[in-house]
Amino acid sequence: MNNMNEQSEWLLQQIDQLKDSQPEYEKRAFLTALKKVVIEQTTRTDQIQHELDGRLWNHDKW
């Protein structure tokens, strides 16, 4: 989670707030899973961006 952007950080905070206010286990479990998905999506987006940057700067492939 080192490279979280502001939107992802905000979304994770919102999920945590919702989870803390939920009395039902099922809803808390759903929100926990949702948080994991957001973290994974952010990680993959960051990886794809770095790969794209690397490919664009590879002058051998121009």
Results as ranks from 00 to 15, higher is better:
3 N>L: 04
40 E>G: 04
7 Q>C: 11
23 P>C: 05
58 N>W: 07
10 W>I: 07
5 N>K: 07
33 A>P: 07
37 V>E: 02
39 I>G: 12
17 Q>I: 14
53 D>M: 11
6 E>S: 11
61 K>M: 14
16 D>T: 11
55 R>D: 02
22 Q>F: 03
46 D>Q: 08
26 E>P: 08
59 H>S: 09
24 E>C: 05
47 Q>P: 06
16 D>P: 01
36 K>N: 07
40 E>K: 13
40 E>T: 06
13 Q>W: 07
1 M>Q: 07
41 Q>Y: 10
5 N>F: 06
49 Q>I: 09
53 D>H: 07
45 T>A: 14
62 W>Y: 13
48 I>V: 14
29 A>C: 07
12 L>F: 00
22 Q>A: 15
29 A>G: 09
6 E>L: 03
11 L>K: 06
30 F>W: 03
23 P>H: 10
2 N>Y: 10
21 S>P: 01
21 S>N: 08
27 K>E: 08
58 N>T: 02
20 D>P: 07
56 L>R: 08
44 R>T: 15
31 L>T: 05
57 W>N: 07
52 L>H: 15
43 T>D: 14
5 N>I: 02
40 E>H: 05
58 N>P: 00
8 S>M: 02
46 D>T: 08
10 W>F: 09
30 F>C: 05
14 Q>C: 08
52 L>W: 15
12 L>R: 00
23 P>S: 13
15 I>L: 04
52 L>S: 05
52 L>T: 13
15 I>T: 03
39 I>S: 09
59 H>P: 11
39 I>F: 09
59 H>V: 15
52 L>Y: 15
49 Q>K: 04
37 V>L: 03
1 M>Y: 02
33 A>S: 11
15 I>W: 01
4 M>S: 05
59 H>C: 03
41 Q>W: 06
5 N>V: 01
59 H>Y: 12
18 L>S: 02
51 E>I: 15
27 K>D: 06
45 T>D: 14
24 E>S: 08
4 M>N: 13
17 Q>W: 11
57 W>H: 12
54 G>W: 14
33 A>I: 06
25 Y>K: 15
17 Q>T: 15
27 K>I: 11
42 T>V: 06
49 Q>S: 14
53 D>R: 09
58 N>F: 12
27 K>M: 04
18 L>A: 14
16 D>W: 08
45 T>F: 13
61 K>D: 15
1 M>I: 00
30 F>S: 07
10 W>N: 03
43 T>C: 03
4 M>T: 04
36 K>Q: 05
3 N>Q: 05
24 E>Y: 03
49 Q>F: 04
2 N>Q: 08
33 A>Q: 13
30 F>A: 09
25 Y>T: 13
41 Q>T: 06
23 P>E: 10
25 Y>W: 11
2 N>D: 02
19 K>E: 05
53 D>I: 06
56 L>V: 14
36 K>C: 00
42 T>K: 00
33 A>L: 13
